[in-house]
């Protein structure tokens, strides 16, 4: 097992694999990263290699299968996601987020300024671009028949989700980002 995974503690005893909300959250954070950056999915495999996590993440197909454990996905896999794989995705997410710290901060500042002036997202190119790409990714990959996905047909709600994920990505960039994200994945799951 790669040593880097040991930076994340084992969750409470009795948890063998990743809870549903955690699988969904990890996939959505990666989706937000892809919306930030055109080369997001390529970078994902590259970072896995940089962090020596290839043995856990495997190739592109295996990565797709891991992300498809998100229950909202069109081709959602019913198989569980192991803790080892979840740890790897957590580390990769935080690593990718840290590389894009500047972009994330810019977009969040822009959002705040637009809010203060009560302007729509279209007034900032970067933000509109991110939201548009996230919307396209979300609709093309998530199962439109799921009730949770139907709720996001409202663009307003989907924008809120995208911005919320952007907020969360910012917190992933911090010193304790990976540990905090990892702990948050099991919120409400431990007894």
């Amino acid at each position: 097992m790669p040593v880097v995974l040991n930076t994340l503690p084992e969750p409470a005893r009795g948890i063998q694999d990743c809870p549903k909300r955690a699988r969904q959250q990890l996939d959505l954070l990666l989706l937000a990263i892809e919306a930030l950056d055109l080369s997001g999915s390529e970078a994902l495999l590259q970072v896995a290699a940089d962090l020596n996590l290839q043995s856990v993440i495997g190739d592109r197909v295996n990565l797709w299968r891991l992300r498809s454990t998100n229950p909202l996905r069109r081709n959602s896999q019913r198989q569980p996601m192991g803790l080892k794989e979840a740890k790897a995705l957590t580390l990769i997410t935080c690593h990718l987020a840290r590389r894009r710290t500047g972009t994330i901060r810019q977009l969040l500042l822009a959002h705040q300024q637009l809010q203060d002036k009560q302007l729509s997202f279209d007034h900032n190119f970067g933000l509109a671009h991110y939201l548009g790409r996230f919307q396209a990714h979300f609709h093309s990959r998530m199962n439109p028949k799921r009730a949770a996905v139907i709720a996001y047909r409202d663009p307003e709600k989907l924008h809120t989700l995208a911005l919320d994920l952007l907020n969360q990505l910012l917190f992933c960039t911090g010193t304790a980002g990976p540990q905090r994200l990892w702990a948050s994945l099991f919120d409400g799951e431990v007894s």
């Binding site: 909300r21 959250q25 969360q168 917190f171 905090r180 948050s184 919120d187 409400g188």
Partner: peptide, 11 residues
């Protein structure tokens, strides 16, 4: 710390 974790999990 507690609040930041709550932001990440929305719990």
């Amino acid at each position: 710390n507690t609040y930041a974790q709550g932001l990440l999990s929305n719990i």
